[in-house]
Design a protein around this nucleic acid. Structure first.
Lengths: 220, 220
DNA sequence: GTCTATATATCGATAGAC
DNA sequence: GTCTATCGATATATAGAC
């Protein structure tokens, strides 16, 4: 009886602890993305949470530990999106377009992810490399692309000198740029790449771009 | 006589001052690019210069003033490259390829520029917006593209629903991504996008990409 | 698990002599 | 213009009571 109560209490405490940790991670995600790793303030994160700074160190050990938890969460999110793409019986070109547009849709709606990737690259991916989970799980992003490209090449539809990693690079480059370089681009060219009125045409353009490149026979 | 000597001394002093300032800016460029704005250390910059920290504040007023000077210099450099592109009598598609490849060549050899642009975007281009020089001069990057695209559209060679800013965005996205996201990409996909062995094919690919997209008739 | 108070370190910026 | 020494603010991290 006392054991049951103890377990119940533990369960409730654990549940609340998990919620608190999730709360901290969400606030920290915004803070790190907005100010960079060195620019982010642990005090500021604590102030915007329902808990205190002491708890941040209690749960995550250090500023770096918290940053790592933030990184793992955003990478887990895009992994979910990638797993949710189903191309069914689509022809290779239509499938390619679907993958490109899904990536574009994710990136343009997850600004914090793109900013964190930028920040991580400034630090030469030193933190990312510490996460075996991210390295192992996120490499699978190209398995679907590999399949589609192989089909397209076998059908004589796609050029055969551009592989799945190259295509992933082209798609990511286009989608990342819209978010990552939004502010300098807007300042210099006076065009907000994420303006609602441009979203449809920019989503179509990335599909056109990748399909046109892969079906371009003049390159062979 | 005393005036001449005074002028000569002033001239020498000014010359050395300019050299010292240039020295500081070069070191600061590397420090800011490698560590971000908040992560950069004025002490570290001073230590790597032949002068002292006191002189940095004497010449640039503050850490932010120094950062601004760094930004203006790297933007002036790419402006020079853009002005140096001459397409002569090239056909629209060949001209487009030339512009794309020149941008790719600049970005892949100016890592600090790309890193500073990333950093500046993390800070919502707040510093960039303070420089009227950059905003005014660097917007001209698209005038050459506008000319080429107009010619291609008039010749019935290019689609007419993608403008110069869009094309500049595609080219910049591809070229920036190679440098900006090099480390996370290498960590996850085990491929160094800037590996010497890949440079030729990646330079060709950006040309193929932009030309194929613009000449793609299926998009109309 | 949660709070307040504080240690410890470091950074941007400056004082003041020369 | 150039140096050394240092201020004052602020950051991460922790101590210790409850």
């Amino acid at each position: 009886m006392s054991d049951q109560r103890s377990e119940a209490r533990e369960g409730a405490a654990t549940e609340r602890a998990v919620r608190t940790q999730g709360d901290i991670i969400k606030v920290a995600t915004a803070e790190f993305a907005a100010n960079g790793y060195a620019g982010a303030r642990v005090d500021e994160i604590a102030a915007r949470t329902r808990t205190t700074k002491r708890m941040i160190y209690y749960y995550f050990g250090s500023k770096e530990g918290l940053y790592l938890a933030v990184l793992e969460r955003v990478y887990a999110q895009i992994r979910q999106v990638e797993r949710g793409i189903h191309i069914g019986e689509l022809a290779p070109d239509a499938a390619l377009r679907t993958i490109a547009e899904a990536t574009y849709a994710h990136h343009t709606t997850h600004e914090a992810f793109i900013q964190l990737v930028s920040i991580e690259n400034i630090h030469r991916a030193e933190h990312l490399r510490q996460s075996e989970t991210i390295l192992r799980e996120n490499a699978t992003a190209i398995t679907l692309l590999e399949d589609v490209i192989n089909r397209g090449v076998r059908a004589g539809m796609f050029r055969d000198d551009v592989d799945a990693v190259d295509v992933h690079m082209m798609i990511s480059a286009y989608a990342c740029f819209h978010v990552a370089n939004r502010h300098t681009f807007a300042a210099i060219f006076d065009r907000d790449m994420l303006a609602p009125g441009l979203q449809d045409s920019h989503r179509r353009l990335i599909g056109d771009m990748v399909v046109a490149t892969m079906t371009d026979r003049s390159a062979d």
